[in-house]
């Protein structure tokens, strides 16, 4: 693999599936990257089923295009979705820089998926916040302390438990993208609207976050199951414990 291909993959690792809030590279969606001498990049990708929602597919293709375009040497990005009911519209539309609505020829639609993106950003924020809050509660921090915690204090606080560090990193990353005050003295934990948390109704707040996460996780669980089933079907079975075939 060339250095440029590595750079492209590193950029793609920053693109998430909007519902699963996980990198498309970890999910196994990216099937291959081709870099031409003139700096054109082609990204082959595939989703768990032929029917995966077209708007999500479009969003991921746009995000891949934008992420890869940020590399200084890249002249052109061609996302190439295969095995999908709307592959042609997605590939053509994203390469031409069309808004989703225009790419799908919906009469009078200029839908650029901004609302949907905002919805999923919010849900991702809530999901990551719940994970971190529960980890911190489990290690003995009180709701009042969490509600009053500044970003500077969060910085110094270690999140214990399984995956604690990753939970903190993922939350800080999305907290930084929320907008509004984000200096060291700003509150670490705020509502998706940027308001403070009320420790007196902390349980209700957490429960609401859990509801959002449980709803989101469904497609994640289903997608992962479908991906595994597809892989099982596509690959010849090998004995348990045998070495994987060379890549």
């Amino acid at each position: 693999m060339s250095a440029r291909e590595d750079e492209v993959l590193a950029r793609l690792a920053g693109v998430t599936d909007p519902e699963l809030d996980e990198p498309v590279t970890d999910l196994g969606f990216v099937e291959g990257v081709t870099v031409e001498e003139d700096g054109a990049v082609c990204v082959d990708f595939r989703l768990p089923t032929f029917w995966c929602a077209a708007n999500f597919a479009y969003m991921m293709a746009e995000d891949m295009r934008d992420a890869v375009s940020a590399l200084p040497w890249v002249t052109r990005v061609v996302p190439r979705l295969t095995d999908h009911m709307c592959a042609e519209q997605v590939n053509r539309g994203v390469a031409a820089g069309l808004a989703f609505g225009a790419a799908f020829g919906e009469a009078g639609s200029d839908d650029d998926l901004a609302d949907l993106r905002a919805t999923f950003r919010r849900k991702a924020f809530q999901g990551r916040q719940e994970a971190l809050l529960r980890a911190l509660l489990a290690q003995g921090l009180a709701p009042a302390a969490l509600a009053a915690m500044t970003l500077a204090v969060l910085e110094r606080t270690a999140a214990a438990g399984e995956g604690g560090a990753a939970k903190k990193r993922r939350y800080r990353e999305i907290r930084a993208r929320l907008g509004g005050p984000a200096g060291p003295e700003a509150l670490a934990f705020v509502t998706p609207e940027g308001g403070p948390l009320d420790p007196s109704v902390f349980d209700d707040y957490l429960r609401a976050l859990a509801s959002v996460r449980i709803a989101m996780e469904f497609n994640g669980a289903l997608c992962r199951g479908l991906l595994e089933a597809r892989e099982r079907a596509a690959r010849p079975s090998r004995p348990e414990g045998a070495a994987p075939p060379p890549a």
Partner: peptide
Amino acid sequence: VHGKQFIDCFYAYHSAL
């Protein structure tokens, strides 16, 4: 092809879960 893809998708649910 949609007919094929539809049942393939159901079958994927079936075998995945």
